[in-house]
Computed example of a mutant assay.
Amino acid sequence: MHWTVAAPFIHDLKTDGEWLVPHIPGDRHQFSIIPRAHPLANWHNRSSSATDYQEWLTYLQHGKNAIKATEGGVVTVFPQLASAVGIQQRVSRKRIPVVAWLFNVGTCPSGMRRWLAQASLQDIDRFVVHTRRECHIYSQWLNLPKERFEFLPYQVSAIPITHEENTTQPFVAAIGSAHRDFSTLLTAIAQLNLPTIIASGPRALAGLELPACAQAPLGIGKAECLQLAQEACINVVPVVPNERVTAAGQVTIVEAMRMGRAVIASRCNGIEDYIIHGETGLVVEPQSVEGLVQALDLLWNDQELRNRLGHNAMQYAAQHFSDEAAGRALSKILDELEESSH
Rank of each mutant, 00 (worst) to 15 (best):
M1N: 06
H2S: 00
W3T: 03
T4Q: 06
V5A: 01
P8F: 02
P8N: 05
D12C: 03
T15R: 06
G17K: 04
G17W: 05
G17H: 05
G26R: 07
I33M: 05
I33G: 04
A41W: 10
N42A: 15
N45H: 12
S47L: 10
S48T: 15
S49C: 09
T51P: 00
T51M: 11
D52A: 07
Y53N: 08
H62C: 01
K64V: 08
N65K: 15
A66L: 09
I67L: 11
K68V: 15
A69M: 08
T70F: 12
V75S: 01
F78T: 15
F78P: 09
F78L: 13
Q80S: 11
Q80W: 03
A82W: 01
G86T: 11
I87V: 13
S92Y: 12
S92E: 09
S92Q: 11
V98F: 02
F103V: 11
G106K: 08
G111Y: 04
M112C: 06
M112K: 07
A117G: 08
L121F: 02
D125I: 11
V129M: 07
V129D: 07
T131P: 03
R132H: 10
R132V: 15
C135Q: 13
Q140R: 11
L142E: 01
L144K: 09
E147V: 13
F149R: 08
F151Y: 14
P153T: 05
V156Q: 14
I161T: 11
H163G: 05
E164D: 14
T167D: 10
T167G: 00
Q169A: 14
P170R: 02
S177C: 04
S177P: 06
H179F: 12
R180T: 03
D181P: 13
A190G: 03
P195M: 00
S200V: 05
R203W: 04
A204Y: 02
L205K: 08
A206T: 15
G207N: 04
Q215L: 07
K222C: 03
A223K: 10
C225D: 01
A229V: 15
A229F: 08
C233L: 15
N235W: 02
N235A: 01
P238V: 03
V240R: 13
R244N: 12
V245Q: 10
T246D: 02
A248T: 03
A248K: 04
G249N: 06
G249V: 09
Q250W: 02
V254N: 06
A256L: 04
R258G: 00
M259D: 07
I264L: 06
I276K: 14
H277N: 15
V283K: 10
P286D: 01
Q287P: 00
S288F: 04
G291S: 05
Q294I: 08
L296Y: 09
L298R: 14
D302S: 15
R306Q: 09
N307I: 14
G310E: 06
H311T: 14
N312Y: 04
M314R: 14
A317Q: 05
A329P: 00
A329L: 00
K332C: 12
I333D: 02
L334M: 07
D335Y: 03
E339K: 13
H342K: 12
